[in-house]
Amino acid sequence: MSYYAKKIAPLCPVEVCLPRVKGGVEKKEERLRIEKKVLEKYFTEDEFLVILDERGQFLNTIELASKIEKWLEASKDLCFLVGGPEGISPELKNKAHFLLSLSSLTLNHEIAILVLMEALYRSFTILKKIPYHRA
Rank of each mutant, 00 (worst) to 15 (best):
E45F: 07
E40S: 12
E86D: 15
D46K: 15
K67G: 00
L100I: 09
E47P: 06
L81T: 03
L102G: 07
T44S: 15
G87A: 10
H97V: 03
E91S: 14
G84N: 07
I68Y: 01
F58H: 11
L102Q: 09
L64V: 01
E69P: 00
C79A: 15
L49S: 10
L59T: 02
E40L: 06
I62L: 13
T44W: 08
S75C: 12
K70G: 11
S89Q: 08
K41W: 01
K95G: 05
L64F: 12
V50E: 06
I68V: 13
K76I: 00
F80H: 08
R55N: 14
E69H: 11
P85C: 12
V82F: 02
I51Q: 02
D46A: 14
F43Q: 11
V82K: 08
K67P: 00
L99S: 08
I68G: 08
L100G: 07
S101E: 02
G84I: 05
L64P: 05
D46E: 15
E54D: 05
K67F: 12
F48C: 15
G83T: 06
L81N: 08
V82R: 10
E45D: 14
F98Y: 14
K93T: 07
P90A: 13
S101F: 04
E69I: 00
R55P: 00
K70I: 06
K93H: 08
I51K: 02
L99D: 07
G84W: 10
D46C: 04
E54A: 13
A74W: 00
D46G: 12
L99M: 11
L100F: 12
K41D: 12
N94F: 01
T61H: 01
L78G: 11
E47H: 12
R55L: 10
D53H: 13
E63W: 00
L72M: 10
D77E: 14
E45G: 01
E47I: 00
F58A: 11
L78Y: 10
L59Q: 02
G84D: 04
L49H: 07
K67W: 07
L92Y: 05
V50R: 07
F48P: 03
W71V: 02
